[in-house]
Amino acid sequence: MSEKMIQVPTLSELTSKGITPEILFWVGCSGSFDERAKRITKAFVYLLDKMNISFAVLGAEESCTGDPAKRSGNDFLFQMQALANIEILNGYGIKRIVTTCPHCFNTLKNEYPDLGGNYQVLHHTEFLNNLLDEGKLKIDKGTFKGKRITYHDPCYLGRANNIYEAPRELIKKLDAELIEMKSCKSKGLCCGAGGAQMFKEPEQGKKDINIKRTEEALEVKPNIIAASCPFCNTMMTDGIKNKEKDNEIPVMDIAELIMKAKKI
């Protein structure tokens, strides 16, 4: 990614220059700190830059949305996080937010309004799909031609918010072969990370959920497993490693697929 320096302005920098960006990119904790998820963040920022989208991030002013606290049952902590974030967002007069994490997406979109935070919130797959429809980016259809890509639905994008088509349309735009797993869309099996499971050991059982989901993905013999959530990505990547297929089958975020297929 060293073609040119990509500028990632913070909201405070832009505001001091009197610039109001079109969108706020909510990076999220995974996207900021997790090594794997940071690659998704970078891919998305690269695409934003490529399409000349005026955007900004909060940087050090960003803090956890509170999702894992709320799913753990700690509404105090959740609301402390939410109210603090809303104060910052409203202070900047934010109208549109895009995020690469379905958990941040769901919380910002569905749970912040009750606390005074009303924004148009988009998941990056919706956002990218719209931009590609507008022709903002050209896709080199050769990149993934004939590749079998299976898409794992993140629960907080799919069932929680009924977004099933935007990520699929993006895969189709790559001219790749989209193959569905036995359980997909509203019947999609969780990767095992939701509800704050990401941060704890699973309870006693016969198997880990991510292994089961990985087996379902491997059943359809994909060349690539696509995801659109940093947690799902981690879980599926671990699953693929467990099955010793990590050299053959990459787990990729849709933003990374688009980045790879963009025409320079």
Partner: peptide, 19 residues
Amino acid sequence: IENNGAPWPFNQQDRLNWV
């Protein structure tokens, strides 16, 4: 989350290090 605004023990000031 309470201490540094993330579910992992990373410093909030480092949120932009990926840039």
